[in-house]
Write a protein that binds this DNA or RNA. Structure first.
Lengths: 192, 192
DNA sequence: TGCAAAGCGGAGGATGCCTCCGTATCGTAT
DNA sequence: ATACGATACGGAGGCATCCTCCGCTTTGCA
């Protein structure tokens, strides 16, 4: 089942489109290097456009984050379908969350911001949420059906826990994986 | 074993002490109402002192947070000893984390900031960390000794997970407790 | 080629961070 | 009670960032 395409406000006029791309690229690089609280003026400077251009295209910092996230989110979703094909139910679920966590570890605070954003109201994030939800549910439901996950666990419960793992910045990857392990163990049905 | 007293820079001169108290009170209220990223000028205004006074006493936002946290942290630690007396090992541990979580839910983002701060280097937070660690280890070690918690789990693993639960702001208490449940289940030894 | 629509970019107002220093207050020694 | 040194007060102002607004430029269609 193909997820909906994410909406993308990329403008049609040549100069506008060029600047849009430059801004998104600059933002992606700058966010990765210096965290998501970098000055927007810095990003505009790096993209070689005026601050006005940035603000016209992206009315808020969040709007810019959205544009940066879109590819990443898609690739996270795609991996879910790969894992579903290649692994047993619980392992597929575990692998997906591991990759989600790994993505977060390598991208600084992007993933945790994403997790926060998944709770937001914006139309963009509604669609993201739907896509992630669809991919995640595929794995989670199979794992539940196989009796390997407690039936009362919600997908976004797990997403939130995993997102919270590297929320506080600069966690050791080793500790992060130990934390994920705890969460994964917590998903299993009561042993009794 | 009594934890170390937390250092407190409350000044001795009458006017200074009065302003110190006003500032801490105003900061506690404002942080609880509007989150910890409130303008410091707003806090000074609310306390009825000049911005200069605030900065002389608290050279950084963190220093102000420290002063606000000190009581809260102490009371979190104290509760651990109560639970230890009154409950069975695992229940005591669970109750402590539940109260920690509840404290976070009622205090907005204070608790999650605290969790982040526990990783910080400042002398203040080193002592906080030591106190929390002492209280937490008491409960965790007993639970491990009773065979009710996996031996490879670290205290700060759990602290971080619990802290991460309401990191993203505005979580429903019901969901928060479901998440804590998952974490608690994850602590139990493998069923095999 | 001409022209309207769309886009550009930076000046500038608003707000927040933090420093500095002239003035006011406190506590003590006489 | 008084006087004086130490301490504290508080806001003006320098700097950075956010975001808006509007006169000028570019684009793409007819």
């Amino acid at each position: 089942m193909a997820p909906q395409p994410l909406p993308c406000a990329r403008p049609t006029r040549a100069d506008a489109a060029r600047n849009y791309d430059r801004l998104v690229t600059a933002a992606r690089e700058t966010f990765a290097e210096h965290g998501t609280d970098t000055s927007l003026e810095e990003i505009a400077r790096r993209a070689g456009v005026g601050i006005g251009t940035l603000y016209r295209r992206f009315p808020s910092r969040t709007a810019l984050l959205e544009a940066v996230y879109v590819d990443e989110i898609q690739s996270v979703c795609d991996r879910a379908y790969d894992f579903d094909r290649e692994l047993e139910p619980f392992d597929a679920l575990a692998a997906w969350f591991r990759s989600f966590l790994g993505y977060g570890l390598s991208k600084g605070s992007l993933a945790s911001e994403l997790t926060v954003a998944l709770g937001k109201e914006s139309p963009f994030f509604q669609i993201c949420k739907a896509n992630v939800q669809e991919a995640g549910h595929l794995l989670l439901d199979k794992a539940k059906a196989a009796g390997e996950v407690r039936p009362d666990v919600e997908l976004f419960d797990i997403m939130r826990l995993v997102g919270g793992i590297n929320m506080g910045r600069d966690i050791e990857p080793e500790q992060a994986h130990r934390l994920l392990d705890i969460v994964l163990c917590g998903l299993r049905p009561a042993a009794s």
